[in-house]
């Protein structure tokens, strides 16, 4: 079953496909320059404390991203795709 949640709320180790990015063109371009765009496969590595940055794996690299930005990235997760 498909479920759309934001990156900040994903669980550690969960994998999904980016479905939407909420924000203006500048914001989208900024994310895109690091390979974060709709269609990219991402795996969440960790959340640092409550409202701290989120670390994720995307297109072969590790990226740390602020909490508020992470909330604007929506992910399609499939319950079957969960891996730890």
């Amino acid at each position: 079953m498909n479920r759309e949640i934001n990156l900040a709320r994903m669980e550690e180790g969960q994998t999904g496909i980016i479905s939407r990015i909420i924000g203006g063109r500048t914001f989208r371009l900024k994310l895109e320059s690091m390979g974060i765009r709709p269609g990219s496969k991402v795996t969440k590595v960790s959340s640092l404390f409550n409202r701290g940055p989120v670390v994720l794996h995307v297109s072969g690299m590790e990226v740390a991203i602020g909490y508020r930005m992470a909330r604007r990235i929506l992910i399609n997760t499939q319950s079957s795709e969960r891996s730890l």
């Binding site: 690091m34 940055p53 990226v63 740390a64 602020g66 930005m69």
Partner: peptide, 8 residues
Amino acid sequence: TPELFIEI
């Protein structure tokens, strides 16, 4: 202050 956005 902008948010953190870095490659590790």
